[in-house]
Design a protein around this nucleic acid. Structure first.
Lengths: 203, 203
DNA sequence: GTCTATAGGTAGATAGAC
DNA sequence: GTCTATCTACCTATAGAC
């Protein structure tokens, strides 16, 4: 089953051009590679040719920089999966497209994806709540799509979570240098998801 | 398909009783909750009623403490899955038991599992290599078991990786306070894995 | 083996000039 | 908006007494 929406997104288009976006891009790389606590604001600023003090003109704190990134990251995932299923009617194809887009996003944006998935504990409480709300939207969309294929499955929420986990974990191991094709990866994961939802055919 | 080995392991039995083990236990909690860089050695030592200097009698550095934990964690996972399949002949049941044990381990030991999966970048090079070798053993065992069920599947390595991802990601979201039964979780994930490997029945 | 005290370095954030 | 200089706090690790 081929993917119908091989379009790629650059999540950072969501931030207007300029120093603010450049800092966010450098921070995504740093947070993704070293983690929030392991990264340091001096190097992030230097990466874009700025002194460490300059960063604080654009972001009130390191934690607010993290929030900006997490917000962009979560909005971007949600946009990607919504766009992927738009105009598709058949439930099987919708689920395949949804999972494929979700997986592909985590591969193509693996640094940002790591921030999304592993660094939220460093957000301030209020910011965390906002991000959590977006996560709930995405997860609810997944369950809604998948439930159509397994309307009587009492474990559908856990199965949906397992399917999301496959895509999320791509952010941990994906190595762009190995140049694995993210489109093929998404296609496979979409197919695996469909098999997981065929509860009538397997024990 | 019921699980045949509901036994639980305490990975830290691999460290002899005493201050060294107590420190490791406190560090697992700290590293699991805050990450390696976010955790601090003072609090870890204080957690076991020791001054921060006392830690360095038992561990040469924070990074060596991490290595000890990662070694125990990786040995423990490998033991758990090997024990789970021992004496089982039927390939379906072997895969189910393997995946179930792997998943259950990541739930029951979710703090240690987070260290295993997310903190290895902070290891020194030599230590990282040793841990990587254990990981390769575990991953090779997974592929070996699963390939029996899908001998002609060219994507078997990627499918195996996706199945491992489901279990690994449990460490990220699992909340023991929510008291989800890890045995039921493992059972479900084992069943999902079998469906994923039934390539002849689904597109 | 454990303590107190502290060295030595780093990191987030601010002050104030331009 | 960006800089230099610096404050303040924290953290890993060590020194040396007991």
């Amino acid at each position: 089953m081929a993917d119908t929406t091989p379009r790629r997104y650059d999540p950072c288009d969501l931030i207007p051009e300029g120093a603010r976006r450049n800092l966010a891009l450098a921070a995504i790389e740093a947070f993704g590679r070293h983690g929030f606590d392991g990264a340091n604001t001096r190097k992030i600023a230097e990466q874009v040719g700025m002194s460490s003090a300059g960063l604080y003109v654009h972001y009130a704190s390191k934690a607010k920089l993290l929030y900006t990134i997490a917000k962009v990251g979560h909005d971007s995932v949600l946009n990607a999966v919504n766009d992927a299923v738009r105009g598709i009617a058949e439930p099987d194809r919708r689920v395949h497209a949804w999972v494929s887009a979700f997986t592909r996003w985590h591969a193509d944006n693996h640094a940002l994806a790591r921030v999304n998935q592993y660094e939220l504990r460093s957000l301030e409480q209020e910011d965390f709540e906002i991000i959590s709300a977006i996560r709930r939207k995405t997860e609810a969309a997944a369950v809604r799509e998948m439930r159509v294929l397994a309307p009587d499955d009492p474990d559908i929420r856990m199965t949906a979570r397992a399917i999301l986990s496959m895509g999320i974990d791509v952010a941990r191991w994906y190595n762009p240098a190995a140049a694995r094709d993210s489109l093929a990866l998404g296609d496979l994961y979409g197919t695996l998801a469909l098999r997981m939802l065929r509860s009538d055919e397997a024990g």
